[in-house]
Design a protein around this nucleic acid. Structure first.
Length: 315
RNA sequence: CGCGGGGUGGAGCAGUUGGCAGCUCGCAGGGCUCAUAACCCUGAGGUCGUAAGUUCGAGUCUUACCCCCGCAA
């Protein structure tokens, strides 16, 4: 089976790797152009490109694909049986969707029709969902609206971060893609329409990373922190300094009576530090409870444990 | 030349107008306690990123270089 693979980030790389190692004939890899990245704005190739080059695969990096006749003809001339798209970063126009005779299939990191869109993993964690999963589908022109092929559900851990879930789903995505291809190959692939009962998972914006102590409950903040780890990190201001939280734990007031006076907890305003002791830990009052900060990052600093942070910083 | 921060004992930091190199933690030894992320002694451990310059004297000022980090994408 002749396959063209389209994808960009590390999530997609795992899928490419899965089909490559399964021995499929990958006749072309399409990925987004290199971008200036990191300190010094160096040009960095996408993880997919890196992998493709390692394996001496054919790489294409069109800047745009819509109305790009040259690129579309190029793909046509490859005569792919199927195009696999995993987090490519561009919407495929009809002309490309129609090229492969077995269709374009997509790996999406949610249980469709839940969380259509760019950030399904992040939203599953942010919303405190107990489960999520991977869906493969036949692509159509809409945003993740195609007919579904296979699904695989996974549980989300209590304290699991987006990054951790991301890694697990990347691997799973690769496995499910391989299964999907096998079924397509022998003609047993199911095809199920999505119900109209869908939700979307739009890209995250920066404002949402700021903790809103008045509105968000301790549990919501906990979800925010792990949902934004390691993408942006949830932050707040303590003594006018921007502080990011990477790991927090919800505490009940009862658990803390040994180390913090009850009055102190009750009188504190949401967002206020109620205890900052290198040995006992860092605790902030939330609307409906107490949050213990376990991993923290100050301005211009790197992440560290709350213990290390408190050795050199005072609140 | 995208913007910014920083390199000081094992860790996280402070170090004022150049004048004996400090704090918290950890570590080692000892003590106290039924007990502790408890407490009290004592101790080890630093060419202050590198090289050069200014100076009676540089962690501190000047210059060059190396390395690290944050933001931004």
């Amino acid at each position: 089976m002749r396959i063209v693979f389209m994808g960009t980030p590390d999530f997609a790389k795992e899928s490419l790797k899965a089909i490559y190692e399964k021995g499929y004939e990958i006749i072309g890899v399409v990925t987004n152009p290199d971008k200036p990245k990191g300190r010094g704005m160096k040009m960095i190739p996408s993880p997919v490109k890196k992998y493709a080059i390692e394996k001496s695969l054919n790489v294409y990096q069109p800047i745009k694909i819509r109305k790009n006749a040259e690129f579309i003809n190029e793909i046509k001339s490859l005569k792919p049986d199927v195009i696999c798209v995993v987090a490519y970063g561009k919407i495929l126009p009809k002309e490309i969707l129609e090229i492969p005779k077995l269709g374009c299939i997509n790996v999406h990191a949610s249980l469709l029709p839940k969380y259509r869109g760019a950030a399904p993993i992040q939203w599953a964690v942010l919303n405190g969902d107990k489960t999520t999963g991977i869906t493969t589908m036949y692509m159509d022109e809409g945003m993740d609206t195609g007919d579904m092929i296979l699904k695989q559900e996974v549980e989300i851990g209590e304290d699991e971060t987006t990054g951790e879930l991301w890694d697990r789903l990347s691997i799973l995505g690769g496995e499910l893609l391989v299964k999907t291809l096998e079924k397509i190959e022998d003609g047993t692939a199911p095809r199920e329409k999505q119900s109209q009962d869908y939700t979307t998972a739009p890209m995250l914006n920066k404002e949402m990373a700021k903790i809103d102590w008045e509105k968000q409950t301790a549990n919501e903040i906990h979800n925010l922190v792990r949902g934004l780890n390691p993408i942006m990190g949830a932050f707040t201001y303590i003594n006018d300094k921007k502080i990011k939280f990477w790991k927090v734990q919800v505490k009940q007031e009862k658990e803390l009576t040994e180390i913090i006076e009850k009055n102190k907890i009750e009188n504190a305003k949401p967002g206020e530090v109620i205890l900052a002791d290198a040995k006992k830990g860092l605790y902030l009052k939330a609307k409906d409870g107490v949050l213990q900060v376990l991993e923290i990052q100050g301005e211009n600093a790197k992440k560290m444990s709350a213990h290390d942070f408190l050795l050199g910083n005072r609140f």
